[in-house]
Design a protein around this nucleic acid. Structure first.
Lengths: 204, 204
DNA sequence: GTCTATATGGTGATAGAC
DNA sequence: GTCTATCACCATATAGAC
């Protein structure tokens, strides 16, 4: 299983060995045309090989798809872990969480988009469940940070689940409209969302 | 152009004339499998006719797709207009706006999903521009409501564009996770988001 | 308005030479 | 590891009878 060979730290954009390039081009095509709208021929053309050669690296189209998705989610979780580890207050943790998410979108937009749009179309149920579990853990992490803020008296009593969902919605939706050549960096936007929402968390 | 024949009030779910049923089944399939993942054969099967018969009602697959999308957006705008018309304060308008959006998702989930996911894959550039203009007008409406709240002193000075984007992100993301058999109605969730965000709008 | 039959080309996937 | 050649199938779309 190729998924296991690719560590969570595997850079999704710089390395140029064949399977990495295949995944990068596939992610780009899945993101822009959808899973059904991107053919093996399209991917092969983008990489610069024949479609038959794709089958040397991946069993079938679905394995390319699930590898893209699992890689994206693993990398997001890894980034959040890295950037919240040394935070202390709830506000700091939430800020780190959101900036990590934004950084992930900025650096791996196609992977993120392909994962967000395509995961519900995953063929293998085990992979789908695995991704679902990772996403659930991800949301639970944010809920934990918010809950800590309430318990520490940093925030007012609030609906933790709703608050986490609101912030994650903002971050997820960024992949739809944020462009690298726009006026604000992804992390700036994320930070602004956090400020806006935390103002509501503190209000009494 | 069939788009013109279908008024903004056209009910997306109840009427059973052929073209309406085609659109409903197509929306469902586009929402669950993507545009490229749903074939004319699939749509014909769902409707209960042969795929050749589809071409009596629509020129090609793309016309089915764009009709679904334009109908969805028109209906959303119509609903928002209806439910904010008689509001006075900014908070009331924002609440009406959000509840209308939630109602639209609850009543036309497949149409909404197909529109949200598929509009960037629209083939005809004029239709795409038209949908884009409608969506822009939609966001501008919300910005106007928030701006009014700031000018009336109901809200603090805040980044209106960011605030509108935050709320719309929450509403848009609902289509991804909200289920009719869940614990809260779509309108309840929307209302909760509004309360949470407006608390931040009022905070000083 | 719906059908059967068909045209034409693309699909995912494999076999086997180099 | 990459290719050419090929498979069986499905795609969108059309022609024309009823």
């Amino acid at each position: 299983m190729i998924l296991e060979e690719l560590s969570a730290d595997a850079d999704l954009s710089v390395r140029t060995d064949r399977s990495t390039v295949i995944l990068r081009e596939a992610a780009r095509l899945f993101a822009s045309h959808g899973y059904g709208g991107a053919s093996m021929q399209d991917i092969a053309n983008a990489v610069g090989i024949t479609k038959a050669s794709l089958y040397h690296f991946f069993r079938d189209k679905d394995e390319i798809h699930s590898t893209v998705i699992v890689l994206s989610v693993k990398r997001l979780l890894h980034m959040v872990e890295l950037r919240t580890r040394d935070c202390t207050t709830a506000a700091e943790k939430i800020e780190g969480f959101s900036r990590a998410h934004a950084q992930h979108i900025a650096e791996n937009k196609d992977f993120y988009f392909a994962a967000a749009e395509g995961y519900h179309a995953l063929a293998q149920p085990e992979v789908k469940r695995r991704v679902q579990r990772m996403r659930d853990g991800y949301e639970e992490t944010l809920r934990m940070f918010i809950r800590q803020g309430v318990e520490d008296g940093e925030f007012r009593e609030l609906d933790v689940k709703l608050a986490a969902r609101a912030l994650i919605s903002c971050l997820n939706w960024m992949a739809r409209w944020w462009r690298p050549d726009g006026p604000h960096s992804a992390e700036e936007v994320a930070s602004d969302y956090v400020s806006l929402l935390i103002a509501g968390f503190r209000a009494s």
